[in-house]
């Protein structure tokens, strides 16, 4: 029973790790790619690590620490990376409808220019 749950979590994670990398290849521009890769790989790693914890109950606490660590740090890193990409002017895909970032960062840069 424990093994079944553990392997279920492991495979659940593996499928999402694969989907995150697949989205990285298939989607058209950097921003949408980051959407897919951040969400999918985070949940994928979270579920896989928890799966190992379930298969080895002695290690469960340690695996939980690693899993929570991944869940909390991944969004921060991707936010910083996406902002950097936007400020250096990475192009967006053609189907983009609205872009309020110009205005948002325009105010800020005037404030920062000394």
């Amino acid at each position: 029973m424990r093994l079944i749950l553990g392997y279920f979590l492991l495979y659940f994670g593996a499928i999402f790790l694969f989907l995150g990398a697949f989205g990285l290849i298939r989607l058209p521009d950097l921003y949408t790619r980051m959407q897919a890769s951040t969400k999918s790989t985070t949940l994928g790693a979270f579920a896989s690590v928890l799966g190992v914890g379930v298969i080895h109950p002695d290690w469960f606490v340690k695996c939980l620490v690693v899993a929570l660590f991944i869940l909390l740090t991944a969004p921060v890193g991707s936010s910083a990376l996406m902002r950097a990409a936007y400020k250096t002017g990475v192009p967006m895909t053609d189907s983009t409808t609205i872009d309020e970032g110009k205005e948002f960062f325009g105010e800020e840069q005037e404030g920062e220019a000394k």
Partner: peptide
């Protein structure tokens, strides 16, 4: 971004 994904997979 590719590196970031690779890192998560490696962990």
């Amino acid at each position: 971004v590719g590196l970031d994904v690779l890192t998560t997979i490696t962990v």
